[in-house]
Amino acid sequence: MNPYKVLGKEKGDSFEELKARYDELKAIYSEQRFKEGEEGNEGAKKLTELEDAWAMILADCDVKTAEEMGNDYSKVEELIRLGKLTNAQEIMDNVTLRDGKWHYYQSVIYYKRDWMQESKKQLELAIECEPDNQKYKDTLERLVKVMGNPNTNPRNMGAPPVEDPMMTGNCLSNCCMAYCCSELCCSAMRCCG
């Protein structure tokens, strides 16, 4: 698959142009996918194709060094959002100047990989580079006080537990209930008799 063709663009086009086209197509397909019948299916398929193509384009773009990248980690951010952590890591590995921002993004990648200890280490390094950065400090505090706290209430992690009657109790509940009720009936009958 030629990922540039999916976007209707050429390989030499600038990153901004590609990104604009990607956003535009994504909006169209995202809406189309909720339509009924064949059209909806087509939209979902196109959207997957687009996401794959976009990940390939991001990986294909020339890897910039930190000097060129400056403060622009949007490509890394984008890859992390798409769940393409290996591609994001590749870009990170090629950056020579490792400042606070670099350590911060590295910590996000580790977090997404469920490597929490490494993530914490990177956040601490980021704070060492930029001691006044409130965002880094808040992130570290959240990591330690919520995710790394042995006393966090497990109910508060992620989506709140569903209070669906079907999901309280196990598949034996009904048998047990039935058994208890019939037992109750039987004893009642015996007493009466």
Partner: peptide, 29 residues
């Protein structure tokens, strides 16, 4: 050590809370 193990148990709870169940919800909970 508490941090190292707490993150694991909390991530497990997070994933668990995001899932849907059909049979053995309370037991696995």
């Amino acid at each position: 050590l508490q941090f190292a193990f707490a993150v694991i148990s909390n991530r497990m709870a997070e994933c668990f809370n995001n899932m849907k169940f059909n049979q053995s919800y309370t037991l696995m909970q």
